[in-house]
């Protein structure tokens, strides 16, 4: 397969536990049977994709965010820095300037607006990135350090690493965090196509509708995969029909699938119908992006 333009697919969902990781890992492994592919786990708070692969570690690096550091010897206590920080991450306490790194958004305002250069920006570790290889599959994951509250900078740096290193690879899959917050925005905003994974239950439907709103706000082409099809009810299917949303595939609810997942095993090789689904999903994404449907 020779591809005119690299394809970036993000896999997201409103509700957690609907099968994002199952779909990402199986889809990536399926593509890697023939082509080079990159799988990136951007659920940096709770990354799980790596549990399904036994690869060779090819690269590891600490990821930093930039925070200001007070230089007492230069500071004139002019009071500008606490005033320009909208996050209350820099405060003045008597003759001391305190920096709260977990509140800092790395906007540089305090540092660059300081008239005497007393708040230089320094790197602070926020997580670790690892890059693995399993034959044609490159797997990149980042873990947010425990106690770090802001995942956005780590997600953004992980994407930059991938863009730099794997621009030649024709397909990249991003496993996104759950929800609809800024994290999901960050994880999906560069994707050419977003797959929303849901389950046919009231919680699944409610959270899917939030995810759909998010994708519409981002003006992203997207489609839905219904996982655990057979439990719950038909409301998700009706909703997609009414909203004119394409259902790319329905993956059946089977206890055996849950068992394979629970042991950290890929399942598509054991279920020909799932392999068929993966092939359909991939074809849909390629046509949607290159053919301009969706």
């Amino acid at each position: 397969m020779t591809n005119p333009k690299p394809l970036k697919i993000a896999i997201a969902s409103g509700k957690g536990g609907t099968g994002k990781t199952t779909l990402s890992t199986n889809l990536a492994a399926f593509i890697a049977e023939q082509d080079e592919v990159v799988l990136v786990d951007l659920d940096v708070e709770e990354p799980n994709s790596g549990l399904f692969f036994n690869g060779i570690l090819t690269h590891e690096e600490d990821i930093f965010k930039m925070i200001p550091q007070w230089d007492e010897s230069k500071c004139t206590l002019c009071g500008i820095c606490p005033k320009v920080c909208n996050y209350h991450a820099v405060i003045q306490l008597g003759p001391t300037i305190l920096v709260f790194p977990e509140l800092c958004h790395s906007c540089y305002a305090c540092s660059e607006l300081c008239p005497v250069d007393a708040l230089p920006m320094i790197p602070k570790k926020t997580g670790t990135l690892r890059d693995f290889q399993i034959e044609k599959l490159h797997f990149v994951e980042s873990h947010l350090d425990i106690g770090e509250e802001q995942a956005v900078p780590l997600i953004s740096k992980t994407k930059k690493y991938v863009a730099r290193k794997y621009s030649h690879v024709s397909i990249t899959i991003f496993d996104s965090p759950p929800g609809t917050s800024c994290l999901v925005m960050e994880a999906t905003k560069d994707a050419d196509f977003v797959i929303l994974v849901t389950e046919p239950t009231p919680f699944g439907l409610h959270d899917l509708s939030l995810a759909v709103e998010t994708m519409r706000a981002l003006k992203k082409p997207f489609g839905v995969v219904v996982n655990r099809y057979g439990i719950g009810n038909d409301e998700v299917i009706h909703y997609c029909r009414e909203e004119n949303i394409s259902i790319l595939s329905k993956i059946p609810n089977k206890r055996k699938i849950a068992e394979l997942y629970s042991s950290g095993k890929l399942m598509y090789r054991d279920f020909p119908e799932v392999k068929h689904s993966l092939s359909d999903i991939l074809d849909y994404c390629i046509t949607a992006v290159r053919g301009g449907i969706a």
């Binding site: 399904f52 629970s262 042991s263 950290g264």
Partner: peptide, 8 residues
């Protein structure tokens, strides 16, 4: 009871 459950 899954690898992800325990990990998280």
């Amino acid at each position: 009871t899954s690898v992800s459950g325990l990990h998280d």
